[in-house]
Design a protein around this nucleic acid. Structure first.
Ligand SMILES: NC(=O)c1ccc[n+]([C@@H]2O[C@H](COP(=O)([O-])OP(=O)(O)OC[C@H]3O[C@@H](n4cnc5c(N)ncnc54)[C@H](O)[C@@H]3O)[C@@H](O)[C@H]2O)c1
Ligand SMILES: NC(=O)c1ccc[n+]([C@@H]2O[C@H](COP(=O)([O-])OP(=O)(O)OC[C@H]3O[C@@H](n4cnc5c(N)ncnc54)[C@H](O)[C@@H]3O)[C@@H](O)[C@H]2O)c1
Lengths: 246, 246
DNA sequence: AGGCGCTTGTGAAGGCGTGCACAAATCGCG
DNA sequence: CGCGATTTGTGCACGCCTTCACAAGCGCCT
């Protein structure tokens, strides 16, 4: 999904096994495990079984075990995983202990909501700067942060050691903004503008496109509707439980 | 990813090949092709080669051809694909010609931005209702739509034939809202609240979690940082081009 | 101390997705 | 009318991911 780079292992010299080299599919699930673990920790659980954690994260338990085994897992047979320990492990692997600095470009409709979102801070990130090109927006105060002009991006990024940038500008300017981010030293981009970004090979891009998500859902709606000729009516054959709830 | 259901092919009776039964990976890319095609159509192109379209969509051309071949493709060897025809085909497959009705639950920070987003309407969807539980929000007018109380969901959903619901409420109430949506007949849910939803097997859920996206990026940052001991500096070895730009 | 139940970690198999490489098809031109 | 250039559609091989099934390990209870 999205535009990833990550070839296979580069010809790593024989020394320290610098990094576990986890499968992409696994690292994409770690954040979900982490969220579930935090939730469990709040309820006072000291340990979890792979079954329990898997249910809380919405995955197969075998998959979970294999995922955790990849990072040289700390589990105890017959008991389960130590919640606190696992949280620390995953946070380290994801690099969340570094509390990375993030900047947001484009403080419009969406950007405004993102700038005020508490979920960033609570999950390992600091939004340290907001940028916009509109002179009317520059100077505006949002959630304790000043909106700055996009031309200051390079300077501010250097000052604050920003490595992650979020793009929330109109599609037409997204590539321009991406170029500016890259020039400012950003090496990871989260893009909300529809369209494909072109970036150097050392820069990672992840894309969030709402319309695409809806269109995928629409396809399945279409498919379901075309099967109404079959029996079965609309009985809700619920099969999974263990809702995370609050 | 996310929580999908879609087992393999159910024991379909011998009759009409009701639906192409496309691979999930393919249908996840169709929307991107569609966006690229619309862009091409605006520039006046009548046909595209697989190479051209693939570049515009940011994928391998072989993959694109295989994807299109799955839907009994309309391409001409030696020429390429007819843009208008392909647009119509993909829109039909995705069910976008039905202009599906969508409702949004939770008109807070994020919900407000979503409610005002023009990208829904322009890409095949009608946002026909907004719901919230907060009496202060009910009655508010956003983008020509009235915010209604969540208790009216069932009635309105029936009246407007709503099949897709978007959840933008706090995590603690997301499951409750999902249950309400399902009870109201919604069979596809796009969820912005972190956490796992439990729904009947006939309901599709897709999840958008910003923090997860950032954490995946963070991992790669962490990995990159751990490789600074290697040569290579920061030369930007750009390898892909064909930016979509405006 | 020994046995029993529980849970992890993993070997192996199967399925899915990707990308190469090429045959088949079509167009345009001489 | 035939030929070459071009581009699609796909057979095939490879690798990744998922899932089952089970041996190995751990703690508790007797
Ligand atoms: N609003 C939504 O709910 C929503 C949902 C999904 C995707 N998106 C996408 O997110 C992007 C932003 O949407 P929006 O509704 O917030 O649009 P918007 O027009 O409200 O905001 C865009 C902001 O970007 C700023 N901007 C424009 N060019 C810029 C530049 N070169 N540098 C810095 N800032 C610049 C503008 O001044 C404006 O403040 C769009 O690409 C849209 O397609 C929006
Ligand atoms: N704000 C963001 O940028 C952002 C980004 C990513 C994810 N999210 C997630 O999206 C969700 C909403 O975020 P937000 O910032 O808009 O929160 P918010 O608190 O601003 O808005 C939540 C809204 O939901 C309404 N609500 C609460 N319970 C309800 C119920 N049972 N039925 C109907 N409406 C109900 C509230 O009245 C409120 O208007 C959260 O789960 C958040 O984690 C937000």
């Amino acid at each position: 999904m999205s535009q990833q780079r990550h070839g296979s292992t580069p010809g790593e010299a024989g020394g320290v096994p610098a990094f576990p080299d986890l499968p992409e599919a696994t690292i994409a699930r770690l954040p979900e495990y982490l969220r579930a673990l935090h939730h469990l920790a709040e309820t006072g659980a000291e340990t979890v079984s792979s079954e329990g954690l898997a249910a809380a994260a919405g995955v197969n338990s075998a998959k979970l075990r294999k995922d955790l085994s990849h990072l040289g897992s700390y589990g105890t047979r017959g008991v389960g995983y130590d919640v606190a320990l696992l949280v620390a492990q995953i946070e380290f692997i994801l690099g969340l202990d570094e509390n990375r600095a993030v900047c947001l470009v484009g403080v419009g409709n969406l950007g405004h909501a993102l700038a005020g979102y508490a979920g960033f801070a609570s999950r390992g990130f600091r939004v340290v700067a907001l940028f916009d090109a509109d002179p009317n927006k520059v100077g505006e105060q949002i959630n304790g942060l000043n909106v700055q002009h996009i031309d200051d991006l390079r300077r501010v990024a250097a000052e604050e050691s920003i490595t992650i940038g979020v793009i929330a500008t109109p599609p037409g300017t997204a590539q321009m903004v991406a170029d500016a981010l890259v020039a400012a030293g950003v090496t990871s981009i989260l893009n909300f503008a529809p369209g494909v970004l072109s970036v150097p090979a050392n820069v990672d891009v992840r894309k969030v496109d709402l319309a695409i998500e809806l269109q995928i859902l629409s396809f399945h709606e279409h498919r379901k509707a075309s099967l109404t000729s079959l029996p079965g009516g609309r009985s809700a054959a619920a099969d999974n439980q263990e809702a995370v709830g609050s």
